[in-house]
Structures are given as C-alpha cells and as structure tokens.
C-alpha cells in the first residue's frame, strides 16, 4: 500500500523502534557490568528474558484486545483480567496453604491457573458482551469495578490467610520487574511461543477484525470462532505476564496507544511488532534508567502506572472512547 511521500513509512517506524529496543537490551546487559561474564549472563540474562517476555505478552494481548473490542481505551488489565489472575493465585494459596501451594510444582500451578483463567475470561467476556448493544462505557466501568472486586476479594482472602501464608503471597503479588520468577521462565516462554504460533496462523484476520463485527462477517471471517480463540490466547498472555511480574494495570495501554499513534498505518503487520518493540524499550530501558538514576530503589511499575494513568485520562478526555 502506497503512502504519501511526506508521511514516515511504517517500516521506518518499525526499524526505529526495533533499534531502540535492541539498544536498551544491550544497555541493560552491559552498563555497569562487573565481574565474570558467565555470572552476568545468567543473572541479567534471566531478568532480560523475563522482561522481554512480559513486554511481548502485554503488548500483543493489549493490541489484539483493542482490535477485538474496537476500542483504543480498553485493555485486558483495565477490565480486570490480571486482577482475576491475582485472585486465582490467592484462592490457590487459600485452599492449599502456603506450604501446600509451595509444594505444588510451579510449572504445574502455572498451567492450572492459566487454564482456569482462560475459562473464566471467556465466561466473563461472553457475559459482558452478550448484551450486544451494551454501551462501551458500561463495559469499561463494569470491568474496572470487577477488577476492584477481584482485588478486594484477594485481599479479603489474604487477610483470612495465616499471616505466614500472607507474606509468601504478598511477595508474589506486588508488581516488580526486579523479582521475575525464574522458575516460570521456561514454561512461560513455551506458552508464549505456542500462542504466537496460533496468532501467526490467525494474523491475516486481524486487520479485517478491526473493521468491526459486521464488516468482518461480511468479508467471510468466522467472527465468533476467531474472537473466542483470540480471547483465549489473550488470557494466556495475561497469565504469562501476571505470573512473571504481577499485575500492571496501565502498561499495556501506554504501549498500545504509543504504537497506534506512532505507526502511520493501522495494519497489524506493523502495529504489533512496533508495540512489542516499544514495550521492550520502555520496560528494559526504563529499568536501566531507574537503576542508574534512582539507584535501584524505585519500582518501575509505579512510574509506568503513573504515566499510563495519565494517558488513559487523556484518551478519555480526547474522546477516543467512542
């Protein structure tokens, strides 16, 4: 597709964001690196892989969720998906006890939680969207309140927990890109790869889906099936990111908004990779800056929440929430 000469081409944006992502990764691995390379590789490398996975999962799930819902303000976490995952984890510890939960193989636990998560999110989504003509604002508000309900339920259960169990859990639930659960990296990467493969197969439909339900059906897409499948995949990606770093409400919104805004086309072939690159650059680059500027003692998630929240209000006010 041709673009006017005065417009930046999508490939340029893609290359630029990819370069930025690569640069931040190199910076993360090298700046201030002292000591043996094998240690750095294993220590920082694990963290880097974790962050890249999280960035990828959040960026892709958010962009696709926005495509399905036809809205640039909704994200899985804003309507409470990751709060749901947190609740799941809490329920798990609640019924098994910290000792019990710890004795369950973490990979198995992840698979289990993800499976429940997929089922629940499909149910929730079906319930919310079955009304058909329900207003988008209602959906958003219901999602936000549901997220709040999940969080309150989690903290209720956490209170009811044995105080020792509580400490175990709290450690796991506060969003921190610093304490990525290394046990889960393998299985999380596998899940992400599997999801990516299915997404690859579905990718030709993405642009059509962004035209809306009627247009997509008119063009021969089995809308119901594709959307259900995508939602399941999104739930898996949300599980991946939440399991690794805990809930982060606004990161997806921040990244997706930037990607839609910067990419001079709505084609997913560009928007998706640009979003992923921006996510990596923000997450990894942000971590590097925080470690240098604030010498380690500020959680990146807080900074991201701040800017993400501002973007959200800005988007609402500018009225793209139609």
């Amino acid at each position: 597709m041709q673009a006017d000469a005065k417009r930046i081409s999508p490939s340029t944006v893609l290359f630029a964001s990819a370069a930025l992502a690569l640069l931040s990764m190199i910076a993360f691995m090298t700046i201030g690196a002292k000591g043996s390379w094998s240690f750095i590789l294993s220590f920082r490398g694990t963290k880097l892989i974790g962050m890249v996975l999280v960035a990828y999962a959040i960026a892709v799930s958010t962009v696709l969720f926005q495509t399905i819902s036809g809205n640039r303000v909704l994200t899985p976490s804003i309507i409470g998906f990751d709060a749901m995952y947190t609740l799941l984890q809490t329920v798990m510890v609640f019924f098994l006890g910290a000792a019990g939960a710890a004795s369950v193989n973490p990979q198995l636990q992840f698979v289990l939680e993800t499976a429940v998560m997929v089922g629940l999110s499909l149910l929730l989504f079906r319930a919310l969207f079955s009304g058909g003509s329900r207003s988008l604002h209602l959906l958003m508000l219901v999602g936000v309140i549901l997220g709040g309900l999940f969080r309150s339920l989690s903290s209720f259960l956490q209170r009811v927990l044995d105080p020792n169990d509580f400490i175990v859990l709290q450690d796991r639930l506060f969003a921190s890109f610093n304490s990525i659960d290394a046990n889960l990296l393998g299985i999380a990467a596998t899940a992400t790869l599997a999801v990516t493969f299915v997404l690859w197969r579905l990718s030709p439909t993405f642009d059509v889906l962004s035209l809306g339900r009627e247009a997509a059906i008119g063009l021969g897409v089995d809308h119901q099936r594709v959307v259900t499948l995508l939602l399941a995949l999104i739930a898996v990606l949300v599980s991946v990111s939440t399991a690794l770093v805990g809930p982060v409400t606004f990161f997806g919104l921040l990244v997706a908004s930037l990607a839609w805004q910067l990419t001079p086309t709505a084609s997913h072939r560009f928007v998706l990779p640009v979003a992923v690159c921006i996510a990596i650059a923000t997450l990894v680059g942000g971590q590097v800056m925080l470690e240098r500027l604030f010498s380690f003692n500020t959680a990146l998630s807080i900074v991201i929440e701040f800017f993400g929240g501002l973007v959200f209000i800005f988007l609402l006010i500018r009225g793209s929430a139609r």
Binding site: M1, Q2, T67, P204, V208, A215, L219
Partner: peptide, 20 residues
Amino acid sequence: DNHITARLSVRDLVAFGRYP
C-alpha cells in the same frame, strides 16, 4: 453505520474487499 476505529486510508479500506 460504518464506524471504524482503525485509522485506514481509502485504499486500505477498499483493499479489504479482496480479503475473501
């Protein structure tokens, strides 16, 4: 009601007619 959130060019939109 043809409301589309995606920022598409006319040519992009027309090209979707070939999707089937």
